[in-house]
Amino acid sequence: VQVALISHGKQLFNLWGSAPDVDRNEAGRLLELVGMGGYADRPCGELAYGDLKRLELAVALANDPKLLLMDEPTAGMAPRER
């Protein structure tokens, strides 16, 4: 999510350094928004399929879209996760 925020802000030179605190805070806010706040420090490879879908949504929202078209965004998720 931080990389998406940095690339959206056209700050790619920061990609190899530490992310600015503003991007870290915004990434945390987006993760909280999709219900993933407690997973911020976990590698993506350890996440369940439903959690990956929520992470993808946070990445999409990081680009501050005016309109977000989604094709079956909850496919494969349990009813509780939807």
Results as ranks from 00 to 15, higher is better:
Glu26Arg: 13
Ala40Cys: 06
Ala62Pro: 01
Ala60Ser: 06
Asn14Gly: 06
Val22Phe: 08
Gln11Ser: 11
Met36Trp: 06
Gly50Arg: 06
Arg82Trp: 03
Gly45Gln: 08
Ala48Gln: 11
Gly35Ile: 07
Asp41His: 12
Arg42Ala: 13
Gly38Asp: 15
Leu52Val: 09
Gly50His: 08
Leu67Asp: 04
Gly45Ser: 12
Asn25Trp: 02
Tyr49Met: 11
Val34Gln: 10
Arg24Val: 15
Ala75Lys: 12
Pro65Trp: 02
Gly76Tyr: 02
Leu33Val: 00
Arg29Ala: 15
Val59Arg: 15
Asp71Arg: 01
Pro79Cys: 11
Leu55Asp: 02
Leu61Glu: 02
Cys44Thr: 14
Phe13Ser: 12
Leu31Val: 03
Ala58Met: 05
Val34Trp: 10
Leu68Val: 01
Leu12Trp: 14
Pro79Leu: 10
Pro65Gly: 07
Arg80Lys: 12
Val59His: 06
Val34Arg: 09
Cys44Gly: 04
Glu32Phe: 02
Pro79Lys: 08
Leu31Lys: 05
Glu26Met: 09
Gly35Tyr: 09
Leu31Ser: 09
Leu67Arg: 00
His8Thr: 09
Thr74Ala: 14
Gln11Ala: 15
Gly76His: 09
Val59Gly: 04
Leu33Ile: 00
Asn25Tyr: 05
Ala78Met: 09
Gly37Gln: 03
Lys10Val: 09
Ser18Asp: 11
Asp41Tyr: 03
Val1Glu: 06
Gly76Val: 04
Leu33Tyr: 11
Pro73Lys: 02
Leu68Gln: 02
Arg80Cys: 10
Leu55Arg: 08
Trp16Arg: 13
Gly9Leu: 09
Ala58Tyr: 06
Ala19Met: 01
Lys53Pro: 01
Val22Tyr: 10
Gly38Glu: 14
Gly45Asp: 11
Glu56Met: 13
Ala27Val: 01
Gln11Val: 05
Gly35Asp: 08
Gly37Tyr: 00
Asn25His: 12
Gly37Ala: 14
Ala78Glu: 14
Ala4Pro: 09
Leu30Asp: 01
Leu33Ser: 08
Leu55Lys: 09
Gly76Met: 04
Pro73Met: 02
Leu57Gln: 01
Ala27Asp: 08
Glu81Gln: 15
Leu33Gly: 00
Ala4Glu: 14
Ser7Met: 12
Arg29Gln: 14
Asp71Gly: 07
Lys66Asn: 09
Ala27Trp: 06
Val34Glu: 11
Arg24Thr: 14
Ala75Glu: 12
Pro79Arg: 07
Gly9Lys: 08
Phe13Glu: 12
Leu47Glu: 06
Tyr49Asn: 04
Arg54Tyr: 07
Leu47Phe: 11
Gly9Phe: 05
Arg80Tyr: 10
Asn14Glu: 13
Ala75Leu: 12
Leu67Pro: 04
Leu52Cys: 13
Leu61Val: 00
Glu72Lys: 03
Lys10Trp: 10
Gly17Ile: 01
Gly38Gln: 13
Ser18Gln: 10
Pro65Val: 02
Ala75Trp: 03
Ala48Ile: 05
Lys53Asp: 02
Leu67Cys: 12
Arg42Gly: 05
Leu47Thr: 09
Gly28Ser: 06
Gln2Glu: 15
Glu32Thr: 10
